[in-house]
């Protein structure tokens, strides 16, 4: 598989995944951009992996989990040019976001917990694969998901 072929089919799913992780289309673009640049520069190594897609997803997830607060700013400045074609959320979508409390609660979760939730409830991956992507034990995946769900339930009660 070449990098081009990989990007043809996998870029869109990765971008959707990044949107779910970050909750923000701009940050998602930056995250995917940074990851995919490294993928392209090291394509030989990526292609050698047993499952290149999972390998890239792991790169992206690590990047997200490790991304320091504040460094977003730098990343945004690095973006080559402002992107006029970026879809601006419509009023309707914006108000939907405002109404969407569970979405905003997600942003308060620790990043690893949020990643675990996205991988299980959006990507529908089995716990074993989630553990591989997050680089931890299966038990750790389960406990962080249950902790995250408990946090969200507590928010529900308060709301």
């Amino acid at each position: 598989m070449t990098y081009e072929e990989f990007a043809d089919t996998r870029l869109a799913p990765l971008l959707r995944y990044a949107v779910m992780l970050t909750g923000d289309p701009h940050q998602a673009q930056d995250l995917v951009q940074e990851t995919m640049v490294r993928v392209q520069l090291n394509w030989r190594r990526v292609a050698r992996a047993d499952a290149p897609e999972r390998y890239v997803r792991r790169m992206l997830t690590n990047q997200y989990v490790d991304w320091r607060r504040g460094s977003w700013v730098r990343r945004v400045l690095l973006r080559a040019e402002p992107d006029p074609t970026l879809p601006v959320p419509t009023d309707h979508a914006q108000s939907a976001v405002d109404r969407d409390q569970i979405w905003s609660w997600l942003s308060r979760l620790p990043r690893r917990q949020r990643a675990a939730l996205v991988l299980r409830y959006y990507e529908d991956l089995p716990d074993v694969e989630i553990a591989d992507i997050l680089g931890c034990a299966v038990g750790t995946v389960r406990s962080s998901i249950s902790r995250a769900l408990a946090t969200l339930r507590a928010e529900y009660v308060e709301a």
Binding site: V19, A28, Q29, D83, W103, Y122
Partner: peptide, 10 residues
């Protein structure tokens, strides 16, 4: 919630 936000994807 995840599915609802898919359209945010650029």
């Amino acid at each position: 919630a995840f599915v609802r936000h898919e359209p945010m994807t650029p």
